[in-house]
Design a protein around this nucleic acid. Structure first.
Lengths: 188, 188
DNA sequence: GTCTATATGGGGATAGAC
DNA sequence: GTCTATCCCCATATAGAC
């Protein structure tokens, strides 16, 4: 933390770029895309707003380069197929859920842009569709994998809507009930 | 446009408000919330941007007053419970689907605002939760109804992402496969 | 009352000086 | 490489003209 600042405004390009990316990542997750101004990012790093644009080309490209949606569901694919539905839901709710919801919200709210929508598709493709399709049998495997992805997005969005009726439900109940719905697509 | 005040079918006077709402509704559905400026709405009607604010208070209130997400699923609740899942999905995909996807996208992208999130919750509550909860049995009825709403949002969002792999699937296949997943929550 | 003109403050992005 | 100065677009609020 102390290696970022300390020797005045005459720093190196590489570390400035990394500092911008670091600050942007946090601010985007916390305040969303529209809620985060280039000026705010620059202020957090202690540089001029124009530098941010100079390093990353535009606010949108900065967002696309720094946004990370950690979905630690890789390990959920190991295990018996008959309980895969529950394991997927369980994985979606574990780890840093608040940050995941915030990032998901930031992505959705910025999905005006074609590039952002492509990014969302890409994340779903890599984390859900490909691994799932490999495990599912039947001619509808690809479709079923995509629909499981839709279920997961729906769950994250519902939780991100701050609906107390849903966010206050015990995790185990959520896993059991929604897991059955996911399992219906796993089984085909 | 030097039409003097008075009354008439030329979009002036008392019909100005309606004309603004009409133009705003179309523009929001087509270009989203952020993508639609008050200036653009005013230009479409042929008036000054300040008039829009004068009539509706703010861009956000104009959006909240004019946004309509037609979900003609009321009739889907009539019929045997064992095929309710399919009927719900069928209803979600019938009617003017492109407009529904555009409006859903506009709502999601504007969900930075608490008022918009509340609006989204309200729509889900009235169109899904209440009617569904009345038909579902068991102690988890409320939870299951909300999760079906999450599934529907997930489906709309996935379709709105312009993923050809999903939008090109025949409607009947989508209804059959996703309907089973919904049915899993109907059955409990 | 209805509408127009204008001012304010903030945003992203650019050109060019150190 | 870095920053200063600037441009254009936006939403919003206020004052004043019909």
């Amino acid at each position: 933390m102390s290696n970022v600042a300390g020797h005045g405004p005459s720093g190196q390009g590489a570390t400035t770029r990394a500092a911008i990316a670091e600050a942007a990542s946090h601010l985007f997750a916390e305040h969303g895309y529209a809620g985060t101004s280039v000026r705010a990012i620059a202020a957090a790093v202690g540089i001029d707003p124009a530098l941010v644009v100079r390093y990353f080309g535009s606010k949108e490209r900065l967002f696309l380069e720094t946004v990370r949606l950690p979905l630690p569901i890789a390990k959920a694919f190991d295990g018996p197929l008959e309980s895969l539905g529950e394991r997927i839901v369980e994985a979606m709710l574990s780890g840093n859920l608040p940050e995941r919801l915030a990032t998901m919200g930031a992505l959705m709210r910025a999905s005006d842009s074609d590039a952002v929508r492509e990014k969302v598709r890409e994340i779903g493709e890599l984390t859900f569709i490909h691994p799932l399709r490999a495990q599912l049998a039947g001619p509808d495997a690809d479709l079923r994998a995509r629909l499981i992805g839709a279920q997961m997005n729906g769950l994250l969005i519902a939780l991100g809507m701050d609906d107390d009726r849903l966010t206050h439900v015990e995790r185990a109940r959520l896993v059991a009930v929604y897991g059955r719905a996911v399992q219906a697509l796993v089984d085909g």
